[in-house]
């Protein structure tokens, strides 16, 4: 996306809640200090924050999964990027929600955050999803850990663009990996037939896929999306796709976007040393009208890009 660079700042936040959702997924609610209100009230879905966890202690040995023991012994120096899963800036205060998955030394330390603890963060960062005025129909494609910014986007769209039809395609390896969502199962239906409250409460039609068939369609989310697009052939001028998830899923979505001529925005992840455009570590290879390819910065020019500007490897 190429909007003007937004203003950002460094703030302290206090933990309202840090709740486990399954064994490795967590929801963190942070209340930001008052002086962050102005900047965060205009923040958009798809933007992110960089959290400093270097001061946090590790959980006790018992609570460290064996798989993460070795990496847990590493010190954390750099901040870590996390997308907004929600921002609430009513009532003269800013509450930011983050959904995170425990994968390594930083997120393992975040597990220990308790109500009232202070954390330091930088934000709001990057450019969020752009919402063109002329679209009537929106397709969300969320893969694995890519759900948080799309949960946020769905809420924003429902609030600001009531007349848009939204369909969500959600994929994960297994049902357990859908833990960012509040899952409801209907006793009268099959165990694989579940609803995701974050979308259901906004009446967003949701198609779930899992690699192992433990919930919804068995297969990749992009296969399910392709089937649907093939049946419905939505009008490209009126429709837009927003996608976030593993890079392979995003590149498959980009292929569908060009095949069905539906514009598509993707939110990318890169290893980020700074998150604020200082270091150039987060390069994304993009097409350039004149000279072939160029690198854009995921943290500053992204993390949201048009799928057809990215050079997919």
């Amino acid at each position: 996306m190429s909007t003007l660079p937004s203003k950002k700042g460094i703030f302290t936040a206090s933990v309202l809640q840090n709740r486990g959702l399954g064994d490795k997924f967590f929801r963190l609610s942070l209340e930001l200090e008052k002086k962050a209100n102005t900047l965060f009230s205009s923040a958009s879905a798809g933007q992110f924050v960089e959290i400093d966890v270097s001061q946090l202690a590790l959980p006790t040995e018992k609570l460290i999964p064996e798989k993460l023991w070795d990496s847990s012994q590493r010190n954390v120096l750099l901040r870590r990027p996390f997308s907004f899963a929600d921002i609430d800036s009513s009532n003269d205060c800013t509450i930011v929600e983050i959904l995170y998955c425990v994968l390594g030394p930083a997120t393992l330390r975040m597990k220990t955050l308790k109500t009232g603890d202070a954390v330091n963060l930088i934000g709001p960062l990057g450019n969020g999803f752009a919402i063109p005025e002329d679209k009537k129909s929106v397709i969300l494609v969320a893969g694995g850990m890519g759900a948080p910014p799309l949960i946020h986007l769905a809420k924003v769209l429902k609030k600001q663009h009531q007349d848009m039809t939204i369909t969500a395609f959600v994929g994960a390896k297994t049902k357990n990996d859908l833990a960012f969502f509040d899952i409801k199962t209907d006793k009268l239906k099959k165990k694989t037939d579940i609803t995701l409250q974050e979308f259901a409460k906004h009446n967003i039609k949701t198609c779930i896929s899992t690699d192992d068939g433990s919930a919804g369609f068995k297969g990749f989310v992009t296969e399910s999306l392709k089937n649907r697009l093939g049946e419905n052939k939505p009008a490209g001028e009126e429709t837009i796709i927003y996608a976030c998830g593993p890079e392979a899923m995003l590149s498959a979505t980009a292929v569908l976007s060009s095949e069905f001529r539906i514009p598509c925005q993707v939110s990318l992840e890169r290893r980020m040393a700074c998150g604020i455009g200082l270091c150039q570590s987060c390069a994304v290879k993009c097409r350039d009208k004149t000279s072939g390819t160029l690198y854009k910065l995921c943290c500053k020019d992204g993390p949201v890009f048009w799928s057809d500007e990215v050079v997919w490897e």
């Binding site: 010190n75 120096l77 750099l78 290893r271 270091c279 150039q280 570590s281 390069a283 160029l294």
Partner: peptide, 14 residues
């Protein structure tokens, strides 16, 4: 243009 990614990796205290 610079190098391909990953361009950085965190190490202990560095």
């Amino acid at each position: 243009l610079g190098n391909d990614v990953p361009r950085i990796v965190e190490t202990d205290s560095g």
